[in-house]
Structures are given as structure tokens and as C-alpha cells.
Write a protein that binds this DNA or RNA. Structure first.
Lengths: 122, 122, 122, 122
DNA sequence: GTGGTCTAGACCACA
DNA sequence: GTGGTCTAGACCACA
């Protein structure tokens, strides 16, 4: 999991997004157990309370569920899971367009710059 | 100037970016005077200290210069000005690609989704 | 026996209360044997340690007694048994009045709302 | 604000309920400012973080809103506010009926016990 | 070991 | 001063 400690975006929200992305990528699947908050805290070099906060946020969003004393699991029955990928992708597209428009860049140039950069990076 | 008071990104940095975007769009030009921090504060419904901080940041980045008693002006001789547009655009492109990759989306699909959304929004 | 795993009230205390209620209802009588902690644990899908703790609490309150090798039984000679029903009922009434007062609801309205709800539910 | 530090119910949730009750009683009104979390913490002899958690929960439930650097206020435009009183009252009634049923007490006796206790306490 | 609450206290952006 | 994030660490019920 990638965390940016210098970002103004709170760490616990970065963690929520990272889990969503892992779900979108198929690296996490419904029913999967995610590490305990203490384990995760050690892995990420972050305070256990910060992890707890991320986990509680995911629970609140219906992404995970907790089994008493057994751990936290990706929820199985949530319609949310289905739509995460397309929603997050759409949000990224919108953000991109807004950023580029803010710079006075026209649609054709947006597509062009994207193509060029993708080619350059292989 | 668009400010998002709920964003984790500090308002003073949002203000700096807004000025850079206005430069990229050509709405601000070298030599232009920008409002005094008190005026600006009232315009944006923001504390004067916050505007001050934004202006200091711009000065530090070489974007503006302050003439004693006359106000703050967009700098004329800065090489930075030339490159703002392409730098910020490139950053937006990179961010977009990174976001989409994070979701496991392939280059072709990135371009496709961009095209579709641009068409939909006219 | 009804347990609420999401309640902040510890499960072992919920279990004690459930036994008291069964006594009040007359479903359990002095001298009755209650299931062994292992049996009970399986019935309720709960850890045996949790049942043990509930049983210890009941013993401590004088509700039950354990006969070496024979099991745990509802006590016969306890004055406590006599008063459980009225005590718990009185506590429920007090709680109700307190809750309603906390909402600024007057006695007549309390009685009225109770009547209405009882009628609705048949 | 009444807090019970021995209750298994978390303090931060007790605080949320207390605010709701104050709203139901009309002691708090839309637009009212509630004490800063640091002030409240000192008043209630509780850790500031615990108050923060209560306040964030209220914000999440749409009960309050926060004005940057100015404090936390009871929300004005929320339909939730309208229904708090009746919802909480209905919940109390339901809880009471359930408690009494659990003791094997019939509807008439519920009403009777309520009347008696209300009379005794004047 | 696992989730969860709470305390104590630092640090930050903003008004 | 006001909201907000984060660290460090204690304590609890439950598996």
C-alpha cells in the first residue's frame, strides 16, 4: 500500500482509497481478510489508531465488515463493490478534464497530451 | 477564483494554484497588478492572513514581486512564467495516468473513457 | 436466548440478563439445570470463555449454584429469585420514564404513546 | 450534559444522544453554537479527542455543521432535526415494551406499572 | 491476537 | 482560539 506522508490528504483517507483501488484492480476480493489494525500499522509504519480510523471509515461506507475477535473482511454482499471501479475511474476522468480546462487546454489537446505521454512511457 | 474549503489542500496553496492557472489561461499577464491582500480577502471571504500567506508563497516561487506602496504584480522576467502551463498540464496528465493505473485500467481504456466523457459533455 | 453482538453491553452480561428474564417469565425454575458452558457455547455460537464468565457472574449474584460433576443449577433458596421480576420491571419503567423525560415528554404523553404503540402492535 | 462513565455505552455516543435530547427538549436550537471540543472536554472532564469523536459523529449524521475556525453549529436546514424527538421517543417506547415482554409482563400491567410509578414520583 | 474506547499531548491550517 | 490529524500507549471484551 502506497502512502504519501507529505500529502495534505489525511493518511487514513489515503488508506481507504488504496483499499478501493486494490478492489478495483482485483487484488482484493469479497471475503478477503485484511490485516489487523495492529499488523497493518506495523507494516505501514503508522500508528494503530490511524489504521483503526481508516478501517472504521471503510466499515461506515459498507466496504468491510467485522467479525468479533476474528478480524475485518471485505464485504461480500455490497452493491458498492460492483461500482467502485467505474466510479473512481469516472472521478479521475472528471478531475483530469477540470484540471486541463483550468489551464485553458482544449479537448483535442487533452487527448493529444495523454496519448503522447502514454507512448513515451510505453 | 475557485476555493474548496473542504479540501484537505490548504487554502493558501489553492490560491497559488488558481493564480498559476489564470496565468496559464492568459487571464493574468506579466505586469498585471493583483488585488491587495485585504481586497482579495474580502472578495474570497477569507481571512487576510491566509491571503498574505498565499502571496508570500507566490513571491517565494518567483511568480510575483511587490513594489513598496504600489502593490503586488505578476513578474515579467521570470522563466517560470513561460513553463507554468506545460508543467501543470504535464502534472495533470501524470496524475490522471497514475490514478487510472491504480485502478488497473489500461492505456487504451484511459483514452477511450476520456473521449467518451468529453463527447458527452460537449 | 437473544444476544446482540453489536451492543456495547458485554455479551456475558447480556447472558446473565437473559437468564434472569427466563426466570421472571417462569421458563426457568429453581432447581432447573442449565446447559454446561461448552454446550451453551455451541448453542449460542459464542466462545466457551464468555459463557464461563456469565456463569461465574450468576454464581456470584447468588442466582445459581454448581454441584461438582453434576452441573450448574438455578438456586432454590435465594431470596433474590423472588424479587427479580419486580426489580427488573421496575428498572425498565424507570429507564423509560427517564428516557422520555430526557426528551421533554410529559407523563400523560408517555402513557398515551405507550397505549398507542401497544394497540398498533396488537 | 449527563455522562455515565460506568456505562458500557461509549462516552462519545452518550454525548451524541445528549445533544439530540437537548434538541428534542428545545434547549438547543438550529443555528446554536455548541462549545468547542476543547472547552467541552474541560466542562465534562473528558479527553478532547473523545469530544471530537462525538462531534464528528454528529456531523456525519447531519446534525451539525462546522464553519472553518469559527466552531460547530446545530444545522438549520436538516429534516433530521424535525424527526429526532418522535424517533427517539418511539425507540424508547419500543425498548420499554420489549423489556417488559421479556419479563413476561402483559400490556395492561405495563400501563399500570407506568401509571403507578408516575404517580409515586409526582 | 482482534476490534474498540479512551487518555495525553503534539502539530497544523485557518479566523 | 477552532477544527482536525496523528502518535503513543493503556485498558477492555471476546475468540
Amino acid at each position: 500500500m502506497q502512502l504519501n506522508f507529505n500529502s495534505p490528504k489525511p493518511i487514513y483517507l489515503q488508506m481507504v482509497d488504496e483499499v478501493k483501488k486494490a478492489l478495483a484492480r482485483g487484488e482484493l476480493k469479497p471475503g478477503d481478510k485484511i490485516p489487523s489494525h495492529k499488523e497493518q500499522a506495523q507494516l505501514l509504519q503508522v500508528n494503530p489508531n490511524t489504521v483503526m480510523r481508516a478501517y472504521q471509515e471503510m466499515e461506515r461506507e459498507g466496504l468491510t465488515e467485522t467479525l468479533r475477535g476474528q478480524g475485518t473482511f471485505i464485504k461480500n454482499d455490497s452493491a458498492i463493490l460492483q461500482s467502485i471501479r467505474s466510479e473512481m475511474a469516472q472521478a479521475a476522468v472528471q478531475q483530469f478534464i477540470e484540471d486541463m480546462r483550468g489551464l485553458g487546454i482544449e479537448p483535442e489537446e487533452m487527448a493529444h497530451m495523454l496519448r503522447v505521454t502514454l507512448n513515451k512511457e510505453g
